[in-house]
Design a binder for these strands. Structure first.
Lengths: 361, 361
DNA sequence: ATGAAAGCGCTAACAT
DNA sequence: ATGTTAGCGCTTTCAT
């Protein structure tokens, strides 16, 4: 005997309000509010009556009404290109985790790298009254992007919110912004130096994305390591591609076809490394016997690659956490300056690097 | 000369309201509202004056106020265990993508599998007035879990919202719920049948999570395939573990230590498969020459595994999209019944399966 | 074409 | 300890 349930058969019933509770409990609105907030003395008997009504009506506050009255919405916005990227997902987890700890809601928006969509999202978040808007990922390193960032920071600040930049360098001018960065350059230096100290001299850099901050910093670290080992950088060894897997596959095929000589690859991201390794395997070049490979990001799948990928660990989860924590703990009075944090990176040595093979005579 | 910017130096200034705009433009609130909504005739000159004020004040609506007035909040909630799992991330992307298409905001909450946290999150979402609450992932298959789901569905429905279950079987009783499922059992059947048709007879099933819907359905498919090939299931070949990588590594080591004989592994998830392959490799067993392996989920990293993993493709992104679409397009009047959709799964044949090696004489 | 005013659900000051 | 009331920012009748 299936008994149909009243709620559904009545369709979308009006949700219970605080007044409903008050009426049922025979008290005033204020009393109900006080019972729920628990920040004010209320007699035990009334409290019980109110709580019974709350349960009976299955009442929950209207967050909109509360936010309107409070003038703040207890939400954190997280804006990224694509939640599917493992490193972004990791950062998102950090943000969500920490937001939950502070009792904040976490709104996620993706932009697919579209500037237009980014602007729209920022406005949406201002409309929401988000306490912070966390932008993750490197940015384009041109005047126009910088200008947009400045505008975002200011309009957000003017509304009592705060822009947080994750994983990109701080703007050059004073701006009400929090920057949680990690040491991209040092990680790249360490990775390259590792290769050099194994004896590699011709190291292919794959992922020289021009005008993109993350990419530029990694490339800079590569260059610095080369220089400090007294090696002249060779433009032929610098492959310009974005961080996508597909792009690196294409690029790597092209490099191999051109017969460029190299004994090691420093891929600017693990995805890039995955693409390179696929092509190397296709062409019968063994990693690390024939070619050593180092990646960047230390995404979880690196340990399932064969050989396990040596890569630069980036603390993405902590990046997300720190972003939230900094905003939550920042004294709103002291908010005008740039608030800049740099997290460390370090090399994870695994199995994709070996000394270069001796030249066949 | 660094000019300091006014907004920041004044600290968190009050954000501009519609009244501010009205005042600056010298019109009434109603007029501003109408200009912004664009759903009402307004003279061109007034419109221009209003728009100028909007730009000058950098005004954006207060979403809370609007939602309060409208009685609806244009947000979709997405609740999952852990955003870091590649398949969940994929589904999340689908939800976000489709939500954006409908102009909805997407709130993400993780529960880490805690029931307590799940309840809290549901209430939070009721408070937010989310139009839909999408729960993704299998559920425990016990009375208590079922009871919770019933309660969620009803209280959400009572508030004009809707519960959407993604990737789990529909509840046994009529309930105001939308279920977007995929054919777990058929996928498992196909995977197992593939192995069987290659000649494998002793197939290890890793990931028999007891009382967990996803796991049970996959196991059922395995069993059915065995039966239809006239093979007696062997309990020794059924390994009980959750879907985590770490658990499968432990389990696989234990199985190998026990010297259980098998020529193929059907892992109930790709993560499980990754763990199994790691252990197999550690112990010098080649895939697929010595042991064939099939996974489940088809997460992106499967193509970077060596050998590339043969696995069952699950349309996670479409799952997320369908969840949103169904709620958005459902006539609220027709909302009482269970709304059930089943998406298909199919086998992705790659390189981790080969016929079993001939017994060494 | 525009304005005045009520009210969405809640909290907090101000009574009592 | 409890009630009354104003108002958060917006949309939307109802007037004009």
């Amino acid at each position: 005997m299936k008994k149909s349930f009243p709620a559904a058969s009545e369709g979308a019933r009006r949700r219970a309000t605080l007044s409903d509770v008050a009426q049922m409990a025979g008290v005033s609105n204020a009393t109900v509010s006080r019972v729920l907030a628990g920040n004010y003395p209320v007699s035990v008997t009334t409290k019980n009556r109110v709580m019974r009504a709350v349960r009976q009506l299955d009442y929950v506050v209207n967050a909109q009404a509360r936010a309107l009255q409070a003038g703040a919405s207890r939400t954190i916005a997280f804006v990224l290109h694509d939640i599917t990227g493992p490193s972004f997902a990791e950062a998102a987890a950090g943000v969500e985790e920490e937001a939950a700890r502070y009792g904040r809601l976490c709104v996620v928006c993706t932009t697919n790298g579209s500037r237009e969509r980014q602007s729209k999202v920022i406005d949406l978040m201002r409309a929401q009254g988000a306490e912070a808007v966390i932008l993750i990922g490197g940015t384009d390193n041109d005047e126009e992007s910088h200008g947009r960032l400045v505008a975002y920071a200011r309009s957000l600040a003017a509304a009592g919110s705060r822009l947080v930049l994750c994983g990109c360098p701080p703007p050059r001018e004073p701006l009400p912004v929090t920057v949680i960065d990690y040491d991209n350059e040092a990680g790249a230096y360490a990775a390259t130096a590792h290769l050099l100290s194994q004896g590699h001299r011709r190291i292919l850099f794959v992922g020289k994305g021009e005008g993109y901050t993350t990419s530029e910093a990694r490339f800079a670290g590569y260059l610095r390591a080369l220089t400090s080992f007294g090696i002249e950088p060779d433009p032929e060894l610098q492959v310009v591609v974005d961080f996508s897997r597909a792009a690196s596959v294409r690029a790597m095929r092209e490099v191999l076809a051109r017969q460029v000589a190299f004994t090691a690859v420093f891929a600017a991201s693990d995805m890039t490394a995955a693409g390179c390794m696929q092509v190397l395997r296709e062409q019968g070049r063994k990693v690390p016997e024939d070619v050593s490979v180092v990646g960047y990001d230390d995404i979880p799948m690196t340990i399932d690659m064969t050989p396990r990928l040596t890569t630069v660990h980036v603390p993405y989860r902590e990046l997300g956490r720190a972003a939230v924590r900094h905003v939550m703990e920042l004294d709103p009075a002291a908010r005008q300056d740039i608030d800049h944090v740099v997290l460390g990176t370090h090399l994870m040595v695994r199995e994709s690097v070996a000394p270069p093979a001796v030249e066949p005579a």
